[in-house]
């Protein structure tokens, strides 16, 4: 999932304080799972904002709505009839959802309510860690299912580097060395001989280095 964190309420207040009516728009997908922008977070933020502005003597309308997703036209269409009632929208979706909402409703200012971080996993409740950087050329088959692009600070493909100490990365002693994890996994799988094979130079053109990316599937296009 895409992992995000709630923005400080004060920052959102600064963005919307000139408006008279605002819609807080949540998303039922990733940001719900990482407890940053789901229906509950929409309720809490809307409640806090209503209290703040009422306490300031402002008659500000702040409503709540949560969509199944904000990254698909069909769900964003749901708010077509209601969005004109508001001066602005605070989207609690990831950066993708915020942008797609802004692309679809070009006459309406859309403000981000979360800071989007990475594609990751829930390690335990309240702890999320990065697992994928979307490089567009997956090499997990040869690395024991552990990604050196996202788990190694240097993204090196033939590691570890000299900064690996007792299984940890030199950037932070709490960060596991991705390559140590790969070696341990290959050993456990009895495939350590694969570690001896040098990985060829990776084609980074499918990564962000090639600019904004696009996937076109003619077989599913309508």
């Amino acid at each position: 999932m895409i992992v995000a964190e709630k923005k400080p309420i004060q920052e959102i207040i600064e963005e919307i304080k000139t408006h008279d009516s605002v819609l807080i728009l949540g998303c039922n997908e990733c940001v719900t799972v990482c407890e940053a922008g789901g229906k509950k977070e929409v309720g809490v933020l809307a409640s806090a904002l209503r209290m703040y502005f009422l306490n300031k003597g402002r008659d500000m309308r702040i409503d709540e709505h949560t969509l199944e997703r904000q990254c698909d036209h069909e769900y964003l269409d749901e708010i077509r009839e209601m969005i004109d009632q508001y001066d602005g929208v605070v989207s609690l979706a990831c950066g993708v959802g915020v942008q797609f909402t802004a692309e679809k409703y070009t006459q309406k200012p859309i403000y981000p309510g979360v800071n989007t971080f990475f594609m990751g996993v829930t390690e335990s409740r309240g702890v999320w860690t990065e697992r994928c950087q979307g490089c567009g050329q997956c090499i997990l088959a040869s690395t024991g299912g552990i990604c050196p692009v996202s788990r190694c600070a240097k993204r090196i493909l033939n590691g570890p580097c000299g900064g690996s100490t007792t299984g940890n990365c030199e950037i932070n002693k709490d960060v596991a060395c991705g390559w140590q994890l790969i070696i341990d996994r290959l050993k456990a799988l009895g495939r350590l001989d694969e570690y001896e094979e040098l990985a060829p130079i990776k084609d980074w053109s499918t990564d962000r280095a090639g600019g904004p990316r696009k996937v076109v599937r003619e077989d599913v296009q309508s």
């Binding site: 309420i9 209290m51 703040y52």
Partner: peptide, 8 residues
């Protein structure tokens, strides 16, 4: 924390 932020 939220109530402090919103002035309640």
């Amino acid at each position: 924390r939220i109530l402090d932020t919103v002035g309640i």
